[in-house]
Amino acid sequence: MSATRLLVLGVVRMYGRAHGYQVRRELLTWSADKWANVQPGSIYHALKKMTSEQLLEQVDVEPGEGGPDRVAYRITAAGETEFHVLLGKALSSPRDNGHEISAAVTLMTTLPRKRVIGLLRQQLVRIESDRLSARLLAEDSSDWGQPPHIGELYRLWERHADASVGWLRELIERLEGGEYVMADDDGRAFGEPPDDSR
């Protein structure tokens, strides 16, 4: 999964309808180019590709101001399903590059609180298992005939897992304590579509 794909679906969904420049501007205000490596070209490519996959639909074409026309998009029912699937995967088992979990945390408030907590707990179990594996590898690496310094790689993996475990436990605790407005709470959660587009 691409973080760009999730973020583009999320922004179009959030606005109800949005054109490429609007999606780009929104993601740049979030600094997504830095923490998710979302580049302007990848945004426009994602919009076109997801339109061809019927996850988005074109709803309007506005004349561009001295440039190309602006095409407005809206998320389809299939796109809504894809958004929830991608968000669930990114919260429960993101890839190691960090882009997916960053995108997922940005959009997690669009899901019910208990759902997010459950997905994060799945990720926590996986990372705790990875941490234990890294610890065992670090302790036993010289027994396998590997050069002794290879154990440093396993210790690095263990420290990364330690940090992730600590952060996940704290986030779950904050969510259980009612922090952040989520999709099933009173009030409008960040990333939720306008009322007229639901």
Rank of each mutant, 00 (worst) to 15 (best):
Pro148Met: 04
Arg121Gly: 01
Ala72Val: 05
Leu124Phe: 08
Thr51Phe: 02
Thr51Cys: 10
Gln54Asp: 14
Arg159Cys: 01
Gln122Thr: 15
Asp185Glu: 12
Ser102Phe: 06
Leu91Ser: 02
Trp144Arg: 00
Gly66Pro: 08
Ala138Gln: 02
Gly118Trp: 01
Leu132Lys: 11
Arg159Ser: 10
Gln123Cys: 08
Arg174Thr: 03
Glu179Ser: 09
Asp185Phe: 05
Thr81Tyr: 09
Glu176His: 03
Trp144Ser: 00
Asp140Glu: 12
Leu107Pro: 11
Leu156Gln: 11
Arg131Pro: 03
Ile127Tyr: 03
Thr109Asp: 01
Asp184Pro: 06
Glu57Trp: 01
Leu171Ala: 12
Arg131Thr: 05
Ile117Lys: 00
Leu175Asn: 00
Val59Trp: 12
Leu124Thr: 06
Ala134Thr: 01
Leu56Arg: 06
Ala72Phe: 15
Ala72Pro: 00
Tyr180Gln: 07
His160Ala: 08
Gln123Phe: 10
Ile117Phe: 00
Ala138Ile: 05
Leu175Gly: 02
Gly151Lys: 14
Glu179Asp: 14
Gln54Ala: 14
Thr106Glu: 11
Ser93Gly: 05
Leu175Phe: 13
Arg95His: 11
Gly178Ala: 11
Glu100Phe: 09
Glu152Asp: 11
Arg126His: 01
Arg115Lys: 15
Leu137Ala: 15
Gly166Phe: 13
Ile117Val: 08
Gly88Arg: 09
Ser102Asp: 12
Val116Cys: 02
Ala103Arg: 13
Lys49Val: 04
Tyr154Thr: 10
Ser93Ala: 10
Arg169Met: 09
Gly79Glu: 12
Val85Asn: 11
Gly88Gln: 04
Gln123Ser: 12
Gly64Tyr: 13
Gln123Val: 00
Arg95Leu: 11
Leu107Arg: 07
Ser129Met: 03
Ala103Thr: 13
Val105Ala: 05
Ile150Pro: 00
Asp143Pro: 00
Ser142Leu: 09
Phe83Lys: 02
Ile101Ala: 07
Trp157Phe: 09
Tyr73His: 13
Met108Trp: 08
Glu82Leu: 10
Arg159Glu: 10
Gly178Asn: 07
Leu56Met: 08
Gly118Pro: 06
Thr106Asn: 06
Ala183Pro: 07
Ile172Cys: 07
Arg113Tyr: 03
Pro94Gln: 07
Ala104Ser: 12
Thr109Cys: 03
Pro63Arg: 15
Lys89Arg: 14
Glu100Lys: 08
Arg159Thr: 10
Leu120His: 09
